[in-house]
Computed example of a mutant assay.
Amino acid sequence: MIEWSKLTDPEIDALDRNLPVILPVGLIEAHGAHLESGFDSYSADWFARRLCAEAGAILLPVIPYGFADTNWEYASTLGVKAETLGMIIGDLCILLARHGFKKIIVLSGHGGNGIGATLGFQRAFEVFPDLQPAHWCYFLTGGVPMSHADEKETSLAIAIGGVVHMDRAEDFVLKKPWHEVYSRKSIAPKAGGMNGKATLATREMGEDILNRILPVLVDKLKAIIKE
């Protein structure tokens, strides 16, 4: 696997510029009482590593602090504003492009990071209009939507080695209003950021989800490499 942070300057300079660079981005975020707060970051890094290993792309270090959107008020959530994330992603895209790497995939473990990615791409386009960036939220792009710490995300965490406390799992289905909200805690103060039926999570469900997501992402990545 080509891991940027473990290579020397001459080794990086010798890399094929046609190879995509994958930047995993997560979020430290409330996931109830049963799932680790860092799972969005852990899972983004996990999928990025698998993709790079299987398709030959270049792996960048994970950014753990993504866009802290509606779960920002829960105790374990640590992140940044969308504009801040956009500045970071934009700066990295500009430097990567200066070095000749213009195929850049932001692989996210948190859906809200797409806002920051879009802001960053637009900023980088002003300097490199021929940049080829994309934002993939691994579960949405992979075709398996899931909610915060629900049975799907919890099952996936079990399957890939995340920190899960099934003895603490509870079910809570959030009734979302028709409009956007600024704070999820304001409408569900005791939910701990979760939404779903975590008690139904199983390793088998997680392995099925994994086997559905990973081939889709690998095929997309291999097609990009061939371009």
Rank of each mutant, 00 (worst) to 15 (best):
30 A>I: 04
51 L>M: 14
184 R>D: 05
169 A>Y: 07
109 G>S: 06
177 P>E: 05
176 K>L: 15
206 G>V: 10
20 P>C: 04
106 V>H: 03
161 G>H: 07
80 V>R: 01
171 D>E: 03
113 N>P: 10
195 N>Q: 12
15 L>V: 07
45 D>S: 12
166 M>Q: 15
179 H>P: 03
20 P>H: 02
213 I>T: 02
152 K>P: 01
168 R>S: 11
1 M>Q: 14
214 L>W: 02
184 R>I: 03
31 H>G: 01
161 G>C: 04
127 V>I: 14
81 K>G: 15
52 C>H: 03
102 K>R: 09
203 R>I: 10
10 P>S: 00
125 F>M: 12
12 I>V: 15
104 I>S: 09
214 L>F: 03
161 G>F: 04
72 W>T: 05
58 I>S: 02
59 L>Q: 11
39 F>D: 00
87 M>H: 13
202 T>E: 08
202 T>C: 09
10 P>A: 00
71 N>F: 13
204 E>P: 04
148 H>R: 07
72 W>N: 13
226 K>W: 02
107 L>T: 06
147 S>H: 14
18 N>I: 04
209 I>A: 00
154 T>W: 00
73 E>S: 09
58 I>D: 07
145 P>T: 06
95 L>A: 12
33 A>H: 15
89 I>A: 04
53 A>Y: 05
197 K>C: 06
53 A>R: 12
115 I>C: 05
137 C>E: 11
30 A>Y: 06
178 W>E: 14
206 G>H: 02
73 E>K: 08
126 E>C: 08
84 T>D: 03
7 L>R: 01
168 R>H: 14
106 V>N: 04
121 F>M: 11
1 M>V: 14
159 A>V: 10
10 P>L: 00
83 E>Y: 05
125 F>N: 06
76 S>I: 09
63 I>S: 03
129 P>C: 00
198 A>S: 11
15 L>T: 10
39 F>K: 01
154 T>C: 07
183 S>A: 10
20 P>L: 12
144 V>E: 09
210 L>R: 08
141 T>A: 14
213 I>Y: 01
66 G>I: 05
77 T>A: 10
64 P>E: 08
38 G>N: 08
211 N>I: 09
197 K>E: 12
225 I>S: 02
28 I>D: 04
9 D>A: 14
63 I>L: 15
31 H>E: 07
150 D>H: 10
145 P>H: 07
220 K>Q: 15
184 R>K: 11
211 N>L: 11
188 A>G: 00
81 K>Y: 13
134 A>G: 06
200 L>F: 13
7 L>M: 13
157 A>D: 05
151 E>A: 10
219 D>T: 06
195 N>L: 00
33 A>T: 12
187 I>R: 05
28 I>G: 02
